[in-house]
Amino acid sequence: MSDTPLSEMSFEAAMKELEAVVTQLERGDVELEASIKLYERGAELKKHCEKKLAEAEEKVAAITLDGEGNPIGTKPVEGL
């Protein structure tokens, strides 16, 4: 489990750590207290990944296209 604050983690780093957390929990050989901490970290990582995905989806949705479907720029998305 990483000590890196979520705010500093990329989507890819958070997903990698989340996969490691799930693997550890699925093995079932982690003590109860450690399992609880892993579960809590996993929930935080999941929320962080969902936020990063939502931000990316908003950015993609903001891309403006010309008449032929080619990207010509972006428009501001409210709230970003």
Rank of each mutant, 00 (worst) to 15 (best):
S10V: 07
E78H: 06
E31A: 14
E40H: 05
M9L: 13
A43I: 02
A62H: 04
D66H: 04
E50K: 05
I63A: 14
E12I: 07
M15S: 07
T74H: 07
L45T: 02
M1W: 00
M1S: 14
L65K: 09
L45V: 07
Y39G: 09
M15T: 05
K51G: 02
C49A: 08
E57L: 14
D29P: 14
K51S: 08
A13V: 08
T23N: 15
S10A: 08
F11L: 11
S2C: 15
D66T: 10
E33V: 13
E68K: 12
H48V: 10
G67I: 08
S2Y: 04
F11V: 06
D29S: 15
S35R: 05
K52I: 11
A14L: 09
E12V: 12
S7T: 11
T23F: 09
V21N: 06
E57S: 14
E19C: 13
V30F: 03
E44M: 14
T4M: 15
S7N: 10
G42V: 01
K52G: 03
E50P: 03
A54K: 05
A20D: 12
E12L: 12
E68V: 12
E12H: 03
V21W: 01
I72L: 07
P5M: 14
A14I: 08
F11T: 01
V22D: 10
L32M: 04
H48L: 14
V22N: 11
L32N: 02
S7H: 04
K16Q: 11
V30S: 12
E33K: 08
C49F: 00
G42R: 03
A61V: 06
V21K: 02
T4S: 15
G73I: 07
A14S: 09
K47L: 12
S35M: 09
T4Y: 06
E12C: 10
K52Y: 00
D29L: 14
E55L: 15
E8T: 10
A62K: 09
R27H: 08
T74Q: 11
H48Q: 10
S10R: 02
E17R: 10
K59H: 10
E58Y: 07
G69F: 06
S7Q: 08
R27Y: 05
L45S: 04
L65F: 03
G42K: 04
I36Y: 00
E8G: 12
